[in-house]
């Protein structure tokens, strides 16, 4: 893209750009440093490590599965929040944001209270011989707990942007409310929903604190990185982190591109 010679740079904009540059550097510098310090040989060795590969795969699919499973309830709930007024709606909205603001280790402890063998959900699961603790289901619960606000908020904003007029028109054309939801509201809010799904999935993958409390094993990658760091030091943890971040970035960018293509289609 060619910069127009007519662009005038105001001093204030220049100052803000400098601040912006510092913030960007703050985010990017540690990541670049980590990538630079990791040799290709170390990366190849790490990629050959079955424990690392299994862990990355586990992290990817559990987060994906948690996103898809919880989306079934979260998307209709977001629609309800966007379209209906009901008593204590503001309180409900605040509750949705709670997982974002509380420490994630505390979130893990809270969740453990419900899904451990003594919790009401854990007891019920125990009766059919199932345990959430140290299981894939537990990992998904922990991931969903901390990441579901991203999906709900994004989908709600998406539904809010759909003109009510279109839904009214669909109803008057004989569509049932469910048909309106599925054929008008969801397709029109799809971009925001997809964005929310990607965010929830990405946030779920990066979760450490809550998962550590619920399920140390099977080991998702953030826990594995921590374990390698505490047991063997930075040198052994770094290649795992670089590999995981690379895989995540590839998925994240691909999904974003696909979402954009769909939007432009």
């Amino acid at each position: 893209m060619r910069l127009s010679s007519k662009i005038r740079v105001e001093p204030l904009s220049l100052a803000f750009a400098v601040f912006g540059g510092l913030v960007l550097l703050f985010i990017v510098a540690p990541l670049i440093s980590m990538f630079v310090r990791c040799s290709p040989g170390e990366l190849v060795e790490t990629a050959k490590d079955a424990e690392v590969r299994n862990s990355i795969w586990l992290t990817l699919w559990t987060s994906m599965a948690a996103t898809v499973i919880f989306a079934v309830a979260a998307i209709p709930f977001a629609y309800l929040l966007a379209r209906k007024d009901f008593p204590l709606k503001r309180l409900v909205t605040a509750i949705i944001d709670l997982p974002v603001v509380i420490p994630h280790s505390a979130a893990g402890i809270a969740l453990l209270g419900v899904i451990s063998r003594n919790g009401f959900l854990g007891k019920a699961a125990g009766k059919i011989g199932f345990s959430f603790v140290d299981s894939v289901a537990g990992i998904m619960m922990a991931m969903a707990f901390v990441s579901i606000p991203y999906l709900i908020n994004s989908a709600r904003d998406g539904f809010l942007a759909v003109p009510v007029r279109l839904e009214k028109a669909a109803l008057s054309l004989g569509a049932s409310p469910l048909q309106v939801f599925l054929t008008v509201s969801v397709p029109l809010a799809w971009r925001a929903i997809l964005s929310g799904l990607i965010l929830m999935w990405a946030r779920g993958m990066s979760e450490f604190g809550a998962v550590l409390i619920i399920a140390y094993q099977p080991m998702i990658t953030p826990v594995l990185i921590y374990e390698r760091f505490t047991s063997f030091g930075l040198k052994y943890a770094r290649p795992v982190a670089v590999l995981f971040i690379s895989v995540c970035l590839i998925f994240f960018i691909t999904l974003r591109l696909l979402a954009r293509e769909k939007q432009n289609a």
């Binding site: 003109p163 007029r165 279109l166 009214k168 028109a169 669909a170 008057s172 054309l173 004989g174 569509a175 049932s176 048909q179 054929t183 008008v184 397709p187 029109l188």
Partner: peptide, 26 residues
């Protein structure tokens, strides 16, 4: 009742055909 608004409330994610066919599909 058939309802028509001031600013046409056509479904922007559908073609003209799909818009006209909407009630029939329902």
């Amino acid at each position: 009742f058939g309802l028509v608004f001031q600013n046409s409330a056509l479904f922007p994610h559908m073609t003209v055909y799909d818009n006209i066919a909407y009630s029939l599909r329902c």
